[in-house]
């Protein structure tokens, strides 16, 4: 099945590429060190933007496979970081198998199954698989941490992909890829804006024990910037009214902030700084998807409740 791309989506993708080229030129001028962190970050962004562009423009199956891979890498990174029991190896294998199944529900547009498969069926089934192994020591911790990982890295992130298949008959000018792009762009730019305003004006720490770099000024600046961007982009990519666009922007900004904070708390708990080295300069996949684990489901349900 192919995706119908509307010209606003192509224009927005073009805008992202232009932004990337501009950022690359600026960073290469400002930072002369070849292997500096900022330069590595830009290199990673080229990879991310290229893969996302390909996934969103090729066809629906390619997009679902791409988002499924993101879930897989995120879950793998999570399970590598947390302590797991050797007796649960086969249960963990089952947990990985849930990823293609969850994305399969999306491909056949079975919303009812998509929304309960992990929260209900896997929540009940995987602990049964653990119980049958017979090891009770650490049982609650193993079952709890595994479910938390599946909810964040598979269930939550897969909402991003379900945006692609929301029925769009009512709004012929709006496409699934447009909604995905809107959410991805605002989530990532919100991260950047909060960082930027924090560096520029940051004084009052918002949560010193979890993430000492986050400030009230950065947070407020980020929220305002994201609301503004939402108002600018919504008429092109979404069916939102003006007031709903502002609301969606605020929702993404606040949710993104808490998603980021939640993963930071997880890393503090485990005593690690960067969660991996898959993308140089980024720490890892988890550091890229932390905000999305919160923004994707919340934005999806906002959109679905009010418009589809």
């Amino acid at each position: 099945m192919s995706i119908t791309l509307t010209s606003p989506v192509l224009a927005a993708l073009g805008g992202v590429w232009a932004l990337l080229v501009a950022a690359t030129v600026v960073i290469w001028r400002l930072v002369p060190v070849p292997d500096s962190e900022l330069r590595q970050r830009i290199r990673s962004w080229w990879l991310i933007v290229a893969l996302c562009s390909l996934a969103l423009t090729f066809n629906r199956t390619a997009a679902l496979v791409f988002f499924g891979m993101v879930s897989f890498l995120a879950l793998k990174e999570y399970l590598t970081l947390i302590p797991t029991r050797q007796t649960d190896r086969q249960v963990l294998f089952l947990a990985y198998l849930s990823i293609p199944v969850q994305y399969f529900w999306i491909s056949i547009e079975w919303y009812g199954m998509f929304i309960i498969f992990i929260p209900v069926y896997l929540f009940l089934l995987l602990p049964v698989a653990m119980v049958l192994r017979g090891e009770t020591e650490g049982y609650l911790r193993a079952a709890g941490t595994l479910h938390w990982g599946l909810m964040s890295m598979v269930f939550s992130l897969s909402h991003l992909a379900y945006l692609l298949v929301l029925p769009q008959n009512e709004y012929p000018q709006v496409s699934g890829p447009g909604l995905v792009l809107f959410l991805l762009l605002l989530t990532e730019l919100n991260d950047v804006a909060q960082y930027f305003w924090g560096k520029l004006l940051g004084k009052h720490k918002i949560s010193p024990s979890v993430s000492p770099n986050k400030t009230v000024e950065g947070f407020v600046g980020g929220v305002l910037t994201t609301i503004l961007l939402a108002a600018l982009l919504a008429p092109w990519l979404t069916p939102f009214s003006r007031s709903d666009a502002l609301l969606a922007g605020a929702l993404i900004a606040v949710a993104g902030f808490f998603g980021d904070l939640s993963l930071s708390a997880l890393k503090r708990d485990l005593g690690i700084k960067d969660s991996g080295n898959l993308l140089p300069g980024h720490g890892g996949i988890l550091d890229r998807v932390d905000s999305l684990t919160y923004t994707a489901p919340l934005f999806f349900h906002f959109t679905r409740y009010f418009y589809f």
Binding site: F72, L79, T80, T84, Q86, R89, Q90, F93, Y96, G276
Partner: peptide, 17 residues
């Protein structure tokens, strides 16, 4: 980490970084 992916005496590889 490879001892977690495929330990001695096991046949099923489980993904970990």
């Amino acid at each position: 980490g490879l001892g977690k992916v495929l330990p001695k005496g096991d046949w099923l590889p489980v993904p970990f970084f």
